[in-house]
Nucleic acid binder design. Structure first.
Lengths: 181, 181
DNA sequence: CCAGGCATGTAACTGGTTACATGATTTG
DNA sequence: CAAATCATGTAACCAGTTACATGCCTGG
């Protein structure tokens, strides 16, 4: 059984307060950036499904300034219950696929420069990610250190940092090894 | 454009020598275990597609002992060329989705034990993975240290090790933080 | 004789992305 | 007025998984 997880990502954000589909996308990009993504093509249809199942409720957000009308969703107790049920199940590892390593596995088929530049690109992305995560951590401390969620949110960001550092270390090792040949 | 990557995983293995669909699955599990998976449901149809495109050739493997007849595939120069073309393109990061962190984000909704046990489960898996990777590294050294692929294959395993260690470190930190509360 | 490993294949499904269509309002 | 931002939605697509069907041969 392969369950749609987008619904739980959406409910996770909705439990923080009422949001529109657009807000959910934005919140996803800021809160979940380093471990989860959602697209509009999932968000809007799933919000409708959740409403049919009475796991969210919505209302038209009238009298607002800028942009077209918004529909704002809020989680219901049925929604919270569904989220809780999912949380209790052990997380399942979905298939793992890392293109970089698959390419590196075949490195001898193309000039060495190719892979060096792929790794350098990754390194650049990771350096940017490292700064994002540091910034994220500072904001978390400043805005949520009193929240009961703080410990867990901190751990989530911390996981990103450790993983990012490990990959950066690998990039340095790999580049060193690939150049002295 | 979202390209089917299974075909390249299959070509990657086929460049090491002729294999059946079954062999490919097995090789995938041993060579790629920590960064790539394939299922029979992809392998067999894709082998046919590759043959139609003349990127692989096949023959019936008669007079063998045990099991039913095998069809053995070998890569052609067109196949090698297609693989090379893909290798040169920068690897694209496909959407990132880690259930554990999404669950942890909502940790306050369920008893603390739930997440502790999820993390302990992960820790157990990672310890097993660490041993697998160490074993894999030893075999690599023993069997392929003379091969031109050795440096790259070593780096691929090394990436798994660094990532595994980083995640283990996170598990320890997380469990420490979640228990003294 | 049956469980398990070897072996091939197909059908059904779906999660999730991409691209497109549409439109209001603000700002430079 | 064009571009950017806010905002919602749908249609098409497909990569990849799961489940099922089938069958040979070996060893306990």
């Amino acid at each position: 059984m392969r369950e749609n997880r987008s619904q739980y990502a959406i409910l996770s954000l909705l439990r923080l307060g009422p949001m529109s589909g657009y807000d959910i996308k934005t919140a996803c990009e800021s809160f979940f950036s380093h471990f989860w993504t959602e697209s509009f093509g999932s968000i809007y249809p799933i919000l409708n499904q959740l409403e049919n199942r009475q796991q969210v409720r919505s209302y038209e957000d009238d009298k607002r300034t800028g942009g077209r009308n918004r529909r704002v969703y809020q989680i219901t107790s049925a929604g919270r219950k569904a989220l809780r049920a999912w949380l209790s199940k052990p997380p399942v590892q979905r298939s793992l696929r890392d293109e970089l390593y698959l390419k590196l596995f075949n490195a001898t088929l193309v000039p060495a420069d190719v892979h060096r530049s792929h790794i350098e690109q990754l390194q650049t992305q990771l350096i940017a990610l490292k700064q994002d995560l540091a910034q994220h951590m500072r904001e978390l401390k400043a805005q949520h250190s009193a929240s009961p969620d703080y410990t867990h949110w901190r751990l989530v960001v911390r996981a990103g940092q450790l993983s990012c550092d490990a990959r950066l270390k690998w990039c340095r090792e790999a580049l060193a090894e690939l150049s002295d040949q």
